[in-house]
């Protein structure tokens, strides 16, 4: 089981409210990603769930029990930290065994569970080493191992991949996804990287300044963003925002994703000079300087022949999102 419900929770540091009243349901077995720019409160929210910070008001319910004032250790949750937070003075074995030892399991049981976790995570050969003797990826696996042995109701991940290099990050990402498929345990994952969010999540929670902008599956957010903020945050390259007047639209602002634009020689809704053309083979990213609008990005066929300085047109070939003055979708 791993059902987490946040009811009207708020958090203030001194006089500054960083989380206004917030409600959220996390279902058992779900992979939920909190995403948002730095300072949006996603980590604070995670720490509130973990119990490392106290809520200022509201309730946290875990598996039907009120956990608002429970100590971290009583919530049945496990957490993986950005810095791994391994115990430097303990061997890998002891690191992984630590939560079991705290839970008062007997030695045989601990050994069995540690070996099991080490096997799943490919750590069997490293059990007697100290964390200082491991690579970044191995440390991350130890941190995960330490989390899974306790068989928690849910895993909490606080930007666990941000200290790894790009290649390793992709690997670890799929390892975590695999793990989720194996364990089927609720996972709450915090990241500022929308790619991680899109690739991993069952459900994405987009946060902005402590407020939930939108909750939904990756494709729901992609296709039906509720606000300009969500629309701009989800999707890569970023959505183009163009004043409504420039397209004879009544809306305050319209948004078109780069992949929904075609580059044409004649006609098109907008015309301008090519400011850059990046040929990636599979795709070409074209940046067009449109007078009166600014730069507009398009993601088009890899074989297209456009170059710097060419006069081109941009033709909308997909949905147009419309936003009002407050940035809300119309």
């Amino acid at each position: 089981m791993g059902q987490i419900t946040l009811k009207d929770i708020t958090k203030s540091f001194d006089d500054t409210q960083v989380i206004p009243p917030l409600n959220l349901d996390i279902k058992d077995g779900e992979f939920v990603v909190f995403v948002g720019p730095s300072g949006c409160g996603k980590s604070t929210l995670l720490r509130l769930i973990a119990g490392l910070e106290d809520v200022s008001s509201g309730d946290i319910v875990i598996d039907g029990n009120d956990a608002t004032h429970a100590a971290p250790s009583e919530r049945g949750l496990a957490m993986v930290f950005q810095s791994y937070a391994l115990y430097p003075h303990m061997s890998v074995r002891k690191n992984i065994a630590f939560p079991l030892k705290m839970a008062g399991l007997d030695k045989d049981k601990i050994d069995e569970k540690v070996s099991g976790a080490a096997e799943v995570l490919n750590l069997t050969d490293y059990l007697e080493r100290r964390p200082g003797q491991l690579s970044g990826g191995q440390r991350q696996r130890v941190a995960i191992g330490r989390a899974i042995v306790r068989e928690p109701a849910a895993f909490l991940f606080d930007e666990p991949l941000s200290n790894l290099d790009a290649a390793l990050r992709v690997n670890m990402r799929s390892e975590i996804i695999d793990l989720h498929h194996q364990l089927k345990t609720t996972m709450v994952y915090v990241t500022h990287d929308q790619v991680e969010a899109m690739t991993m999540a069952d459900k994405i929670v987009v946060l902005n300044a402590g407020v939930i902008e939108q909750v939904g599956s990756p494709l729901e957010l992609y296709h039906s963003p509720k606000s300009r903020f969500v629309a701009g945050f989800i999707g890569s390259p970023k959505m183009n925002f163009i004043p409504g007047t420039a397209n004879n639209d009544a809306a305050f602002e319209i948004g078109v994703r780069p992949e929904h634009l075609l580059v044409v020689t004649e006609g098109g809704e907008f015309r301008g000079k090519v400011a850059s053309a990046e040929h990636l083979g599979s795709d070409t990213f074209v940046r067009v300087d449109v007078p009166g609008v600014g730069e507009v990005n398009a993601r088009v066929n890899g074989d297209i022949d456009v170059n710097y300085g060419d006069e081109v047109g941009l033709q909308i070939n997909g949905p147009v999102y419309r936003f009002d003055e407050d940035g809300l979708a119309i």
Binding site: A50, G51, L52, A71, P72, S73, L77, A78, M79, F81, Q82, S83, A85, L86, Y87, P88, F98, P99, M102, A103, R146, R150
Partner: peptide
């Protein structure tokens, strides 16, 4: 972090 990890791991 490390102390918080210990707390999460169930240490009093």
């Amino acid at each position: 972090d490390i102390l918080e990890a210990a707390r999460m791991d169930g240490a009093s």
